[in-house]
Computed example of a mutant assay.
Amino acid sequence: MKKPRLNWAAEPWSDDELLECAMAVPETEDTYSFTFRAPSGAWFDYQPGQFITLDLPVDPARGPKGNIQRTYTISSSPSRPLSISVTVKAQPASIGTRWMLDNLKPGMRIKAYGPAGIFSSHRHPARKYLFISAGSGITPMMSMTTWAWDSGEMPDIVFVHAARRPSDIIFRERLQHFANRVPGLQLRLTVEEPDPFRAWPGYMGRLNQIMLGLMAPDYLEREVFCCGPEPFMQSVRDLLNALGYDMDHYHQESFGAPVATEADAPVIDDVVPDEDARSQIRFAASDVVAACAETDTVLAVAKRAGLNIPSGCTFGLCGTCKVRKLSGEVHMVHNGGISDEDIAEGWILACCSNPMGRVEIDV
């Protein structure tokens, strides 16, 4: 294979030129970083956090009709412009990523489009950042963190990442290398379960309000960037809303559907209880009806009505106040004190559930 010639007088790469795969590096199980160069020696100009679209020949026998296009966040940083990298993890139903893992080798050339995207710290400069990611949503955060490292200025970043196991944390060693050398980068990692026979000194369990307060006590002062599966980002928005965070400083990117322009950005219409909106709770077993506001909790309304719901922590952690909802809707932001199975069966935690309209509770 003829190595690409680095031409220091070259222009920035444009998507008129094919990309040549230079390296394929394993990161975790079923996750690889693919590094590309421009055969002409062109350099890459983009914003950290942006994405690129790859044209993948998944069915070469059909010619161009056998190609599919897939977008991937760029995991490298424009501060290192001689190459560009994407880090991909194959999901159970993936086609393009699976093809890359099985077939893409150094020396192969593919068509690419971009870079593009609006998810970048460059667009929202701030003194302090809070990066929150899960799974392969870590890739734009890695790009933005590498830029901060290479900039020569001390960053102020709290980097929060959630994974299933420690061995699933992409870029863990590289991030630890950065954090070991600059106090302004604080790593906060949480996992669902430890790896067998390996001690885990970090956080355990789903990210919640209590955990976030310990990870980043000054979260209200930070510009937040979030990337991960849609349910994860929904839970992050819920907990930030519940904590009184100014959501004008919140930015998100789904690793499933990166956004190219502001016009393409989906409208986020989260449920946020309104203190001026009126609700009503009927406690069925006691035959008591109480008027309240959306911002009241079921537990607080019950106490005002003279009813006793056993409770402990009062912030959704212990699960003591679990009661069954018979009808209506509540907005619940808990801290792990109830399982998804219980929620599906109609159980709620009274201490952190806000009635949305008319609700009936078995109390």
Rank of each mutant, 00 (worst) to 15 (best):
F225N: 03
F171T: 03
T28F: 05
A257E: 08
E221T: 08
S76Y: 11
A38N: 15
P155T: 04
M23Q: 15
H249I: 07
E20K: 11
D238H: 13
Q176G: 03
R80A: 12
R324W: 12
L130H: 02
V224R: 00
C318G: 13
T35C: 11
S85K: 09
G137M: 01
D362E: 14
P106A: 09
V272W: 02
P310R: 09
E11H: 13
I309Y: 06
R324T: 15
A284C: 10
P125G: 03
Q47G: 04
R98M: 07
I210G: 08
N103D: 06
L220V: 10
D55I: 02
F178W: 09
K128F: 09
G319W: 15
A162S: 15
S94G: 14
D218S: 09
I52H: 00
Y32P: 02
K105Y: 13
S83K: 00
W8H: 07
D276Y: 09
N7C: 11
H124Q: 11
H122E: 10
I68N: 02
P229E: 05
L349F: 07
R181D: 15
M247P: 05
V333A: 06
T53D: 11
E230G: 04
E193W: 06
L6A: 04
T146V: 05
G228A: 12
I338K: 03
A199T: 05
D218R: 01
R188E: 14
G107Q: 04
S40W: 00
I343Q: 08
G337T: 10
I95Y: 08
E223A: 04
T35E: 14
A293M: 13
R278L: 12
T71L: 05
L6K: 03
R304C: 09
R282I: 14
G41P: 08
R237N: 03
V224Q: 00
